[in-house]
């Protein structure tokens, strides 16, 4: 299944080294992260040394090499967001989920990340929750956001269990 997907990503781009970044981006979208396995197949498919693929994947923050949680919480730590209190938001996530930036919770529900600027400084402080930009976030709003996501995640898990039974 997974290989079939990878094949479709590589389809029509085989032996085209210049397509490396596009291919990695597609893989990132597809799986949420770029696995070592995927990198090896990309290297083989595009005809690039594995080292090169790994180097590029490591270089860009857009690629994550570890599986990411269901909910990706990205806090902006850029200058504008910082002066409007993004460090409070970081503390909020840290305290609530007990993870540091770049880490994923054990249950795989949350990944916490920091970025330097999202280019929407006027709306700061900004928190991105799964591609949704939330402007003017306060620690309180952030708590509710995380709580809601957590509840939903739990509900889904419970549903999945009963559904199977």
């Amino acid at each position: 299944m997974a290989t079939a997907n990878l094949d479709s990503v590589l389809e029509g781009r085989r032996s085209q080294p210049s397509q490396l970044i596009e291919v990695l981006q597609d893989i990132q979208d597809l799986y949420g992260y770029v696995s070592e396995d995927a990198m090896e197949q990309v290297a083989g498919g595009l005809g690039i040394p594995l080292m090169e693929v790994y180097r590029v994947a490591c270089f860009y923050k857009a690629f994550s090499l570890q599986p990411r949680g269901k909910n990706v919480i990205t806090v902006c730590t850029g200058t504008a967001c910082h002066v409007r209190g993004s460090d409070l938001l970081i503390d909020q996530v840290r305290g609530q989920l007990q993870i540091e930036p770049g880490e994923t919770t054990r249950d795989g529900l949350f990944t916490f990340e920091c970025v330097n600027c999202l280019g929407a400084c006027a709306l700061g402080p900004i928190v991105v929750h799964n591609d949704a930009y939330n402007p003017h976030v306060t620690p309180g709003k952030l708590r509710k956001m995380i709580d809601k996501a957590e509840e939903e995640g739990k509900k889904e898990a419970a549903y999945g269990k009963t559904g199977k039974a």
Partner: peptide, 30 residues
């Protein structure tokens, strides 16, 4: 890379975290 075309080593990361390493940090077999 250039002489042996082995591509076993490369620069990983960027900025102050840049370092020389094998692919995935463990692919010595290349």
């Amino acid at each position: 890379t250039e002489m042996w075309r082995a591509n076993a080593l490369g620069f990983i990361g960027r900025g102050k975290d840049r370092k020389v390493d094998f692919a995935f940090g463990n692919r010595r077999d290349i």
